[in-house]
Computed example of a mutant assay.
Amino acid sequence: MTKSERLMQLEQLLLAHPSGLRRSEIARRLGVHRATVARYVTELTGFLPLNEGDDGRIGINRDDYLSNIRLTIHESLALYLAGRLMTDRTDRFNPHAAAALRKLGQSLRAFAPTIGQHISDAADRVESSKTRRDPVYLAVLETLTKGWSEGRLVSLVHHSVHSGLDKTYLFAVYTIVPYAVGQSIQAIGKCPGEEHLRTLRVDRIAQATLTNDTYTPPVEEDMTRTLADAWGIWYSDSDPVDVVLRFSVQVAHRVRETVWHPSQEMTDLPDGRLLWRARIAEPREMFPWIRGWGADVEVMEPAELRQRMAAEAEVLTSIYHTI
């Protein structure tokens, strides 16, 4: 094995061990002398953000580590669209999103200058937008991201809007997702010793501190299965509920254009209306979306959701009623 291959092997080894490795352990794994490891570490320090702790463990500072990826023009566009969607759907400024878009734009300028310039301009718009600058929010998001990437528990203080109280948790981050409702980002995970998942809105977390306690995150398939029946992020241990909606002729074509949920089924009715059906973990999460269609949708099932819409209609009638 060549020296370059050894250096690459050392980089991959350190990436695989977020808590770092001692020189003796590195030497054993690479099959080289400790003096050789010392030389390798010195050389890698020139182009990798290495650090050495008080306990002698050598690791990579993941906040400053740059990953190298190779993308096609179509893959680059997919990342650009995802980044724009995230920034458009959250109301707080994220400098990392702007930086990522700028890097993506610069990388494309050589062979797709028009698209590269467009993406770079988008990064400028993100930075100059009037979204809120919230350093606490950003620090919390960075801490949650680091805890998730390194499998370390996060100690956090979360404000509950229901009780009005601040509560302290030890939290294992399983995933972080954007959520259109409230233009927010949500952290989903568990507190040690609890059976059920928790979903915490990131902008309601007042403080987050990374601990040295570790956890084993679930495999992606488990999280996908957990959220499979959710309308967004609300999940349930119970069986999903059949939701049946009837859309008017005026909006039927718009409903047909989109796959709103993986389980949806649509039936064209003889009068031009559309019957839409899906199995949803928690139908209450659909309420803002259903309400957005106004009088062009009627809830057929479940009864509880129909009753809630009927009550909403009565309130609206009382507000807008004129003699």
Results as ranks from 00 to 15, higher is better:
Arg6Ser: 12
Met8Asp: 13
Leu14Tyr: 04
His17Val: 04
His17Cys: 08
Pro18Asp: 04
Leu21Met: 12
Arg22Ile: 13
Arg23Thr: 03
Ser24Ala: 14
Ile26Leu: 05
Ala27Ser: 01
Ala27Asp: 00
His33Ile: 07
His33Val: 08
Thr36Glu: 08
Val37Leu: 06
Arg39Asp: 15
Arg39Pro: 11
Val41Met: 01
Glu43Pro: 02
Thr45Ile: 13
Phe47Leu: 14
Pro49Ala: 06
Pro49Met: 02
Glu52Gly: 04
Asp54Val: 15
Asp55Phe: 09
Ile58Gln: 03
Arg62Leu: 12
Asp63Pro: 01
Asp63Met: 03
Asp64Arg: 13
Arg70Pro: 07
Arg70Trp: 12
Leu71Phe: 02
Tyr80Val: 05
Thr87Ser: 12
Arg92Trp: 06
Arg92Val: 08
His96Leu: 12
Ala97Val: 15
Ala98Gly: 14
Ala100Tyr: 14
Lys103Gly: 05
Ser107Gln: 10
Leu108Met: 12
Pro113Glu: 10
Pro113Asp: 04
Ile119Asp: 03
Asp124Trp: 15
Arg125Ile: 08
Lys130Ser: 10
Lys130Trp: 05
Arg132Asp: 08
Arg132Val: 02
Arg133Met: 11
Val136Arg: 09
Tyr137Glu: 05
Thr145Leu: 03
Arg152His: 10
Leu153Ile: 07
Leu153Ala: 08
Leu156Gln: 00
Val157Pro: 01
His158Glu: 06
Ser160Lys: 01
Asp166Ile: 10
Thr168Arg: 15
Leu170Cys: 04
Tyr174Asp: 10
Val177Ser: 09
Ile185Ser: 00
Gly189Asn: 04
Glu195Asp: 15
Leu200Gly: 00
Ala206Val: 00
Ala208Asn: 03
Thr211Glu: 07
Thr216Gln: 15
Pro217Arg: 07
Pro218Glu: 15
Val219Ala: 09
Asp222Pro: 09
Thr226Arg: 13
Leu227Lys: 04
Leu227Gln: 11
Asp237Lys: 10
Ser238Tyr: 15
Leu245Cys: 02
Ala252Lys: 01
His253Cys: 06
Ser263Ile: 05
Ser263Ala: 10
Ser263Val: 08
Gln264Thr: 05
Gln264Met: 11
Gln264Cys: 10
Gln264Gly: 07
Gln264Val: 12
Asp268Ser: 06
Pro270His: 12
Pro270Phe: 13
Asp271Arg: 09
Gly272Asp: 06
Leu275His: 03
Ala281Phe: 10
Arg284Lys: 08
Arg284Asp: 03
Glu285Trp: 05
Trp289Phe: 13
Ile290Met: 14
Arg291Tyr: 15
Gly292Cys: 08
Trp293Pro: 04
Asp296Asn: 02
Asp296Cys: 01
Arg306Ser: 05
Gln307Val: 15
Gln307Gly: 15
Glu312Trp: 12
Tyr320Ser: 09
Ile323Ala: 00
